[in-house]
Design a protein around this nucleic acid. Structure first.
Length: 595
RNA sequence: GGCCCAGUAGUUCAGUUGGUUAGAACGCCAGCCUGUCACGCUGGAGGUCGACGGUUCGAGUCCGUUCUGGGUCGCCA
């Protein structure tokens, strides 16, 4: 039977006991990590959030405590009172290893069944079990450390922004559906039958309204929601560090955020980040790395072979170029011997998932080249390729010919995949950069119109304002992403604060005035009454923490994450609604067409 | 929606070409043990081989379907 505390007070954390406590009588409370029963002596390792301390139970001191201790098992909750003594034999592996508590009183506060997972860092339980019993999983020192690190990072951010004069302001969670974005989580309402709130994908519009309201510098560490498919670094609810500031230009936003990032690295990991961070226009990032979030920790950069192959006999290349596509290649320098035929097959499969039709390759050896396409290339073309790729013996060249998007996607992914396979990615190296000058619009062929690449309130670059109407495909935005080791950490933009320009934007997006008013009328209305120029940024806190500690997925830094199906294995959410509740909400369920 | 990977004691895994009673380690239970700290020793319990269907004299193993979890493409302004 569990015992009551009845006035027993904890005096110390287990993990804090040191030699300076020797001679003191202390009371510890925690979970049984391990029991070692030697017959006439029982040792218990007691664990709390700060660490583990050894308790020694001796029947000569207290028969009652000893008898109770003998009956404990892993994860029992105990309150132990006793004197701190120097150990007879020291355990150098733990910080408390020089001392132990000589127990004279024991209360078994809570018994525990045999847990389904081992509560140790060495536990290898699968994720399914870990998530179902997350409360046990979170008892592991490793998980405690991760979540406390996460708190530390968010506190550093909060403190920094406070120093800079930012004000933490809350925005509604029950809000309006976002047009043109990710899928929203919809929330029905009893008092507004037939109408729906949406959970915010970001507090974007409200933070802009705060700027209209004159708060000048706003921030919030806030949950955002997207009903989209999950990935290793994506959850349906995630935490953003949302920032907005007034009377600023792009440079001001970047400069402030760089210092924020610098502070986070310094105060959380002790890593020095040199400022200013490198900046790379979107166009350059795509051309060199095939990605708008380049991992710059290694080379293998993309090079264009268009000039060399535009008129090649080999139609696969020349026809692609003539029809508006491109031929690009990467050089896996010095890796020729590490790439077997089988590996090439798999790499070809890999690039095909990105839409590539094939993967051409040239192996460069001391004797010459080896390549399935050698026979289709003239001597000059081959020579040109090798020169462009700066190829030397031992190099391995991969070539993709296709329309631009496919070439960038497949080669961009391939260079990262190769770096992974060759173990060239160092988790302790942090390559940060800003990608700037994003396109303002993105053309959607299915919809037959332009969409805002960032969002429709993003300001075009000053020199591209005319292009919003005349040449939207080439208009660049005052938008920027912060990229860390090939992962998009966050992004933002300078917003449009001029109603006329905003109208032009909507027009370019093919939105009618009625649509615009229905969806964003409140914002446009607000902009009529005096709007400061403003801009901001939003960071993914989960991703940031994940990268800082080198975790392999975002779930490792979230206390109660969801599965790939957006379910919670612990609570079994989402669940079916009560019939009465549905009636109140005026909702009737119908079978989906696919069922 | 597509593709790929995994599912065998409480946990992590092994299980040959389809062949008798499905194994190991840790954990658990019982006994012994006064300085352990991965305590030790002895003994023991514990399995719908994810589920359903099929092939076969015979299926953990082969085939199909399905469920669960993961990775990924699409998607994620």
């Amino acid at each position: 039977m569990a015992e009551l505390l009845k006035g027993t007070k904890r005096t110390h954390y287990c993990g804090h006991l040191r030699e300076e406590h020797i001679g003191q009588t202390v009371t510890l409370m925690g979970w049984v990590q391990k029991k070692r029963n030697l017959g006439a002596l029982v040792f218990v390792d007691l664990r709390d959030r700060e660490g583990v301390a050894q308790i020694m139970f001796d029947p000569d001191l207290s028969k009652e405590a000893f008898d109770k201790a003998e009956k404990t098992r892993g994860e029992f909750v105990l309150a132990v009172t006793g004197e701190v003594r120097k150990r007879e034999s020291i355990n150098e592996n733990i910080p408390t290893g020089h001392v132990e508590v000589y127990a004279k009183e024991l209360k078994v506060i809570s018994e525990a069944e045999v847990p389904p997972i081992h509560v140790t860092d060495e536990d290898k339980a699968g994720e399914q079990l870990r998530l179902k019993y997350r409360y046990l999983d979170l008892r592991k020192p490793k998980m405690q450390k991760r979540l406390r690190f996460r708190y530390q990072v968010s506190k550093i951010i909060r403190d920094f922004l406070d120093e800079e004069g930012f004000i933490d302001l809350e925005t509604p969670v029950l809000t309006k559906p976002t047009p043109e974005g990710a899928r929203d989580y919809l929330v029905p309402s009893r008092v507004q039958q037939g109408k729906f709130f949406a959970l915010p994908q970001s507090p974007q519009l409200f933070k802009q309204l705060f700027m209209v309201s004159g708060f000048d510098k706003y921030f919030q560490i806030v949950k955002c929601f997207r009903d989209e498919d999950l990935r290793a670094d994506r959850q349906p609810e995630f935490t953003q560090v949302d920032i907005e500031m007034s009377f600023v230009e792009e440079e001001d936003v970047l400069e402030m955020n760089e210092r924020l990032i610098q502070r986070v690295f310094k105060d959380s990991l002790g890593v020095d980040v040199q400022l200013p961070l490198p900046r790379m226009p979107y166009k350059e990032a795509m051309e060199r790395f095939g990605s708008d979030k380049p991992d710059t920790r290694f080379g293998f950069e993309l090079k264009s072979l268009d000039d060399i192959l535009a008129n090649a006999e080999f139609k696969v290349f020349s026809d692609t170029i003539k029809s508006g596509g491109m031929v690009k290649a990467i050089n896996a320098e010095g890796k020729a011997d590490d790439v077997s035929k089988k590996k090439i097959k798999n790499l070809e499969k890999f690039v095909k998932t990105y839409g590539a039709k094939g993967l051409a390759w040239i192996k460069v050896t001391e004797e010459g080249v080896e390549s399935p396409i050698e026979k289709f290339l003239s001597e000059d073309e081959l020579k040109g390729i090798l020169e462009t790729m700066e190829a030397k013996a031992g190099d391995m060249i991969f070539i993709v010919a296709d329309k631009a998007r496919v070439v960038y996607d497949s080669l961009g992914a391939l260079r990262v995949e190769l770096a992974k396979q060759f173990e060239m990615l160092d988790d302790s190296q942090f390559n940060l950069l800003w990608v700037t000058e994003f396109p303002l619009f993105e053309y959607d062929e299915d919809a037959g119109r332009y969409f805002a690449m960032h969002h429709p309130f993003t300001s075009p670059m000053d020199e591209d304002i005319d292009k919003v109407e005349n040449d939207p495909g080439n208009a660049r935005a005052k938008a920027y992403d912060i990229v860390l080791n090939g992962v998009e950490l966050g992004g933002g933009s300078i917003r449009i604060h001029d109603a006329h320009l905003q109208k032009k934007m909507f027009k370019a997006l093919g939105l009618s005035e009625e649509e615009t008013n229905e969806k964003f009328g409140f914002l446009l209305e607000a902009f009529k009454y005096g709007t400061p120029p403003h801009g901001g940024v939003a960071f993914g806190l989960d991703r940031f923490v994940m990268l800082l500690i080198g975790a392999e997925n975002i779930r490792e830094v979230i206390a109660f994450p969801k599965t790939q199906d957006a379910k919670c294995l612990l609570t079994d959410a989402p669940s079916e609604a009560d019939a009465n509740q549905l009636v109140e909400l005026g909702i009737e369920l119908v079978a989906s067409e696919n069922e």
